[in-house]
Design a protein around this nucleic acid. Structure first.
Ligand SMILES: Nc1ncnc2c1ncn2[C@@H]1O[C@H](COP(=O)(O)OP(=O)(O)OP(=O)(O)O)[C@@H](O)[C@H]1O
Length: 738
DNA sequence: AGATGTATACTTTTT
DNA sequence: GTATACATCT
């Protein structure tokens, strides 16, 4: 057994060894909070505390997994796997899966993700005939979500609504809740609220007996419900340990409340507060920048001095580029430079930005250079149409009352059932207070049910119903993988994809379906009756960061929000412009502006060795270039702390794409940058060959940055005309003998 | 019923 | 510039 305290400083040791009573560890970035939490668990185990008595809450599933891996090293695999570690949401789902019956949750209940929720709200909106002007699905869902964040159910929210508009939202909330109940579905917020309901039953005693030591990471970003969960659980043993940093609270917009830090001190009498002062992550140069940035915040709970272990370090650079094209090019230059010089691997580099939309330019530049990369966020794998369609069918096997999935299943694969027929079914179901599936069954048993559905349309609907019914009945005896295959076969899913998209375009979708099937295969070890539910639950709760694997050597493109808790040797903070950070949607609300400042602070403090800040002078917005302003937060950083480009101001914003600004010299890259490929010249009329699309003729060619963009008409009519980046598409020139 | 075309709105951040 | 929504055609 290792000495767990060896790699820790004094304050960290105190935090690890103060095992009883409430403890609040408040500390800046890179001070080892997560490390302390991990070591504390290991320490508890060494003290002879049973693994099953420990509960650890992390912010992401990935953090949970990493913590478990760390612990396996510290205390061995057997013990480490017995500790309950997870996010609030995933723990809640596990508990409700087991004990949900106690609060009347139907068996086979499902989690509705954001997309499902939006669809359901659209249905509510239609039913209640809400005008779409202020009542966009987004507005309604955020009203419902904030209500839930204040622990208000539909009845309480209705009672509290005074304005006519408020009453409309209340009506939507009420109907939304009813439909969720009929569908036996819960949304993300419900996971927490229902767990609180569960904790109000005598069942709580079992949780008290079970969990004697509770630990929470990223405590500053807990919301009201999560706080109440902690409080309810901690009542048992009183051994509650939380770590957080008020300066890193960046999820206020979804109900997180930093005041939970103050609340902790008042609600848990005699709470011990431990401050970790040393930063082990970043060079002092980087910390100095972070320091001035956060010190400029008008209000803070706790002021901290960022004290690093590495004095000096490479300068933090600041560059202004003409546009996103140039910015992404130069960032790629810098990354290639670092890699060529052997000071970094691709995986040590991260590009961070405020909004997902900003990733595009970087994706294009990276792939053109053949630099391996991953984009975290944006369109997630599980949000893809074909994936959601497969999941809809699978969800129906577990819970046929899931109306949202039923509609999806009717719509894909296409079965000749149109919106009209669905509307008839839906109206009948709503007025009878039953699910769509039940309405189908009723219609099949009784020809006077759903009278609006007649003739051929009714016939097709009945065929669909019978097919689904058969699957639902057979599902319980099947393994997940068998159910998956059976469902694909019954619904003729693949044929549907080919039918809708044509052979070539269907290919990647079929591949995605196979990938999902592979994931499903990982559940084969579980008891047959648990496989499907566990699969659906985990799929609903994966965050995109959870995909980040340390083994692959690729540049990471990530939003600042998702970067919280991560660290990289080299960080590129891009698009530092007003309107982006702070985002225009904050509308200069001082509270939100300060959260934006913290978002930037989180970004700055992710960097270990090198930090590059940049912006563009003009940005493409809605297909139009707009001039930009530098982020106001940069004004808080004294010039002396940054290494500026030498020729700022000489860049003409209207100069177009180009090389007006030299690649940045800070970490020595311009010299290292050479074109990686000798550009092949293409002329209109040239014959080319593409690996997948076959041969084609060049219709046009123009050079873009370091590459050539060509439009090719392929001989294969299924491929048609495509616009391609020559080197990325690996086009080969076909030489014609003259 | 479904495909095709045109208008329109739109882009924070996410479990 | 893109995704969605709606209208119009087949
Ligand atoms: N006592 C120590 N000696 C050496 N390195 C340490 C020590 N404590 C922590 N570190 C290292 O410092 C880095 C930051 O630690 P950790 O991620 O736990 O900090 P954190 O406080 O959770 O950061 P953040 O709040 O920014 O996410 C890690 O690489 C960790 O290994």
């Amino acid at each position: 057994m290792q000495d767990l305290l060896a790699g820790l400083n004094e304050a960290q040791r105190l935090a690890v060894t103060t095992i009883s009573g409430p403890v609040l560890t408040l500390a800046g970035p890179g001070s080892g909070k997560t490390r302390v939490l991990t070591h504390r668990i290991a320490h508890l185990l060494q003290q002879g505390i049973a693994a099953s008595e420990i509960l650890a809450v992390t912010f992401t599933n990935k953090a949970a997994r990493e913590m478990r891996e760390r612990m396996q090293h510290l205390v061995g695999v057997d013990v480490a796997t017995k500790v309950d570690i997870g996010t609030f949401h995933s723990l809640a789902a596990r508990w409700l899966r087991r004990d949900g019956r106690a609060i009347g949750l139907a068996d086979g209940w499902l989690i509705y993700d954001d997309d499902d929720q939006q669809r359901l709200i659209k249905r509510v909106s239609k039913e209640l005939k809400l005008p779409d002007k202020p009542f966009t699905p987004r507005a309604i869902s955020s009203a419902i979500s904030s209500a839930k964040n204040e622990l208000l159910d539909a009845a309480a929210y209705t009672a509290a609504s005074r304005s006519p508009e408020g009453r409309m939202y209340a009506a939507a909330y009420t109907r939304y809740s009813e439909l969720l109940t009929v569908a036996a579905a819960v949304d993300f917020d419900d996971l927490l609220l229902l767990t609180l309901d569960l904790f109000r039953t005598p069942m709580l005693n079992r949780y008290h007996r079970r969990y004697r030591y509770i630990l929470v990471d990223e405590y500053q970003d807990t919301n009201r419900a999560q706080y109440e969960m902690i409080k309810a659980l901690a009542k048992g043993s009183g051994n509650i340990f939380v770590v957080g940093d008020d300066d890193q609270s960046i999820y206020g917009w979804r109900g997180a409340d930093v005041r939970n830090i103050r609340r902790f001190e008042s609600d848990f009498a005699g709470a011990q507060v431990i401050i970790l002062a040393e930063n082990y992550r970043s060079t002092q140069t980087i910390l100095d920048v972070a320091q001035v940035l956060i010190d400029a915040a008008p209000k803070r709970i706790h002021r901290k001095l960022l004290r690093g272990q590495t004095p000096g370090g490479e300068p933090v650079s600041w560059r202004e580029y003409s546009d996103q094209n140039e910015e992404s090019q130069r960032v790629c230059d810098a990354i290639e430079g670092l890699v060529k010089k052997g000071v970094a691997r691709y995986a040590d580099c991260a590009i961070m930005y405020r909004t997902n939309a900003q990733s595009r330019a970087f994706e294009e530049a990276l792939s053109r250079r053949r630099i391996p990369y991953v984009v975290i966020g944006g369109m997630r794998f599980y949000e893809r149409r074909e994936i959601k369609d497969v999941l809809a069918w699978l969800r129906l096997l577990s819970n046929p009352n899931d109306d949202i999935s039923l509609v999806r299943a009717i719509e894909f694969p296409a079965q000749g059932i149109g919106v009209g027929s669905i509307a008839h079914l839906s109206e009948w179901a709503s007025s009878h207070g039953v699910s769509l599936y039940q309405a189908l069954i009723d219609a099949a048993a009784d020809s006077t049910a759903v009278p609006a559905l007649r003739g051929a349309a009714r016939q097709r609907m009945m065929t669909f119903g019978a097919r689904l019914y058969g699957l639902v009945k057979r599902a319980p005896s099947l393994t997940l993988l068998d159910a998956f295959d059976e469902m694909l076969r019954e619904s003729q899913f693949v044929a549907g994809l080919v039918n809708e998209h044509g052979g070539v375009d269907a290919e990647s979708r079929v591949e995605n379906v196979n990938e999902l099937r592979r994931v499903a295969g990982e559940y084969a070890e579980l008891p047959v009756d648990e496989q499907l539910a566990r699969f659906l639950e985990e799929v609903a709760l994966v965050a995109d960061v959870d995909r980040l694997a340390a083994v692959d050597n690729h540049v990471v493109c990530i939003t600042l929000h998702q970067a919280k808790g991560l660290e990289y040797d080299n960080v590129f903070l891009v698009g530092l412009e007003d309107e982006l950070i702070p985002h225009s949607r904050t509308h200069n609300d001082p509270v939100q502006i300060e959260e934006e400042r913290r978002i930037l602070y989180v970004g700055v403090t992710r960097a270990r060795k090198r930090l590059a800040l940049s912006r563009t002078l003009r940005r493409m917005n809605f297909g139009r270039y707009d001039q930009t302003l530098s982020s106001r937060f940069l004004a808080d950083i004294p010039k002396g702390l940054l290494a500026h480009a030498t020729n700022l101001g000489t860049v003409n914003p209207s100069a177009g794409q180009g090389r007006s600004n030299p690649a940045f010299q800070g970490w020595g890259t311009a010299a290292a940058h050479k074109p990686t490929t000798v550009a092949v010249q293409y002329a209109v009329g040239d014959m080319v060959r593409h690996q997948r699309f076959g041969e084609g003729v060049v219709l046009s060619a123009k050079s873009v940055d370091d590459d050539v963009e060509v439009v090719v008409r392929f001989a294969d009519p299924a491929a048609g005309e495509k616009r391609l980046i020559a080197s990325f598409a690996r086009l080969e020139k076909v030489t014609t003998p003259n």
